[in-house]
Deep mutational scan, measured.
Amino acid sequence: FLTKYFNKQPYPTRREIEKLAASLWLWKSDIASHFSNKRKK
């Protein structure tokens, strides 16, 4: 799911990160680090 979202929006806003974190029961920092790691590849 996160990879699909990343393909659409590689630079999510803070609000989008909060929404993703809430819906996936993850920490915002986990979401942010996932996106930054994907951008590095």
Rank of each mutant, 00 (worst) to 15 (best):
residue 28 K to D: 02
residue 23 S to I: 02
residue 19 K to D: 09
residue 29 S to T: 10
residue 27 W to M: 11
residue 2 L to R: 01
residue 34 H to C: 13
residue 5 Y to C: 15
residue 19 K to F: 00
residue 22 A to T: 09
residue 25 W to N: 11
residue 34 H to W: 13
residue 26 L to I: 08
residue 27 W to T: 07
residue 4 K to C: 01
residue 10 P to I: 09
residue 6 F to S: 01
residue 16 E to D: 12
residue 25 W to K: 15
residue 2 L to I: 04
residue 26 L to D: 12
residue 32 A to C: 14
residue 28 K to I: 15
residue 20 L to Y: 13
residue 9 Q to W: 00
residue 14 R to S: 03
residue 14 R to F: 03
residue 12 P to K: 13
residue 1 F to G: 01
residue 2 L to P: 02
residue 15 R to C: 06
residue 5 Y to A: 00
residue 10 P to D: 12
residue 1 F to T: 07
residue 34 H to V: 14
residue 18 E to T: 07
residue 27 W to L: 11
residue 41 K to C: 04
residue 3 T to E: 10
residue 15 R to Y: 03
residue 18 E to Y: 03
residue 13 T to M: 15
residue 25 W to D: 07
residue 35 F to M: 12
residue 7 N to L: 00
residue 19 K to C: 02
residue 3 T to D: 04
residue 40 K to I: 04
residue 7 N to R: 07
residue 4 K to L: 00
residue 33 S to M: 10
residue 17 I to Q: 00
residue 29 S to D: 09
residue 35 F to G: 09
residue 5 Y to P: 02
residue 9 Q to G: 08
residue 6 F to C: 05
residue 36 S to M: 11
residue 26 L to P: 15
residue 13 T to E: 03
residue 30 D to G: 11
residue 34 H to R: 10
residue 16 E to Q: 11
residue 36 S to Y: 03
residue 17 I to C: 11
residue 40 K to Q: 02
residue 41 K to A: 04
residue 13 T to K: 10
residue 31 I to T: 10
residue 38 K to L: 06
residue 30 D to T: 06
residue 12 P to F: 03
residue 34 H to Q: 11
residue 19 K to A: 02
residue 6 F to K: 09
residue 18 E to P: 06
residue 19 K to H: 02
residue 39 R to M: 14
residue 26 L to K: 15
residue 27 W to F: 09
residue 25 W to V: 14
residue 37 N to W: 12
residue 9 Q to A: 04
residue 25 W to A: 13
residue 35 F to Q: 05
residue 19 K to T: 04
residue 19 K to P: 00
residue 8 K to R: 05
residue 3 T to I: 02
residue 39 R to N: 12
residue 12 P to C: 02
residue 16 E to S: 11
residue 32 A to S: 06
residue 28 K to T: 15
residue 9 Q to F: 05
residue 13 T to D: 05
residue 13 T to Y: 14
residue 16 E to H: 08
residue 22 A to S: 08
residue 32 A to E: 02
residue 34 H to E: 04
residue 33 S to T: 10
residue 32 A to T: 10
residue 10 P to R: 10
residue 30 D to R: 11
